[in-house]
């Protein structure tokens, strides 16, 4: 799809919002997403628009469905046995769950970085970066440039440029996580989903990845799940606060510009959570 076509397809996709996202071009739009595992409903009526080239943080206590929600955005959710879903996720002007959409294409365009770094152990650093091209059958010339460019974007280039053919398993946890970010970028996704990408990392690595996120958001749309409130403040433009009562489905209590969620929340529970009073 060309840019012009794309712009056209998302026309009229602007959602009615009472916050500053109103009027922005929207990259993805989750509408009324509810999720079940078997008979148990774990997420209820989540509607979040994701404006293009912004970072949206999903925050909330453990077990409120943030990770589940993020997995519905690139159709990884359906791989779990017993998973069910209602609602729609609009991307490129279309529900990604409509039957004529190829999930492989969606996962190519909407990349993901997971909580634990998962570089492919049998591949070299270079091989890992290029693995997405091989696995998806995507053709891009100048592999050397891609490797350098994505590793630079992920903030790892200087540390590994002399040993691109070393096994990926030799890297530290933080380096591995930046490697998988580079790997995700090599297939040129439009959206990058990050599920607590820094939860297993030390502060220095975390800082590097946060810089990377800020840098990347000039080009692509990022959605990040995080338990770290300061991180949400540092990296995100918008924040959605999830909450779930015990054995009840999770939902979004409040969402909007990060500065308002943290500086001027309207819901008492949001205020308590962002000030570290529970969760």
């Amino acid at each position: 799809m060309s840019t012009a076509e794309f712009e056209k397809s998302i026309e009229g996709l602007e959602v009615e919002l009472s916050d500053s996202r109103a009027g922005l071009p929207i990259e993805m739009d989750a509408r009324d997403i509810s999720v079940w595992f078997g008979k148990r409903k774990v997420l209820e009526g989540v509607s979040i628009p994701f404006p293009k080239k912004t970072v949206t943080a999903l925050i909330g206590p453990s077990g409120c469905g943030k990770s589940t929600f993020i997995r519905t955005l690139n159709r990884l959710h359906e791989l779990i046995p017993g998973a069910a879903l209602a609602g729609e996720v609009l991307y490129e002007g279309k529900d990604i769950y409509s039957p004529d959409v190829d999930p492989t294409h969606i996962r190519l365009k909407i990349g993901m970085v997971f909580q634990k770094p998962n570089p492919f152990p049998s591949m070299t650093i270079r091989g890992n970066v290029l693995s997405g091209l091989k696995l998806s059958g995507m053709k891009r010339p100048n592999h050397d440039d891609i490797v350098e460019e994505t590793l630079r974007a992920a903030g790892l280039w200087n540390e590994v440029k002399d040993r691109l053919n070393a096994a990926a398993g030799e890297l530290s946890g933080g380096q591995q996580q930046r490697l998988v970010i580079a790997r995700a970028l090599a297939v040129q996704p439009h959206v990058l989903l990050m599920d607590e990408p820094c939860s297993a990392l030390d502060p220095a690595s975390t800082l590097k990845i946060e810089e990377t996120i800020r840098e990347l958001s000039k080009e692509i749309t990022i959605i990040i799940v995080t338990h770290n409130m300061q991180q949400a403040v540092r990296v995100s433009d918008y924040t959605a606060f999830f909450l779930a009562a015990e054995n009840e489905p999770g939902y979004v209590v409040e969402q909007g510009p990060t500065t308002d969620i943290f500086g001027n929340p309207r819901d008492q529970r949001t205020l308590d959570y962002v000030n570290g009073r529970f969760g």
């Binding site: 209820e44 939902y251 209590v253 409040e254 969402q255 909007g256 308002d260 001027n264 819901d267």
Partner: peptide, 12 residues
């Protein structure tokens, strides 16, 4: 600038 709150009517 402001935030969007949980809409209990819509959830119903």
């Amino acid at each position: 600038m402001t935030t969007m709150l949980f809409d209990s009517e819509k959830i119903q």
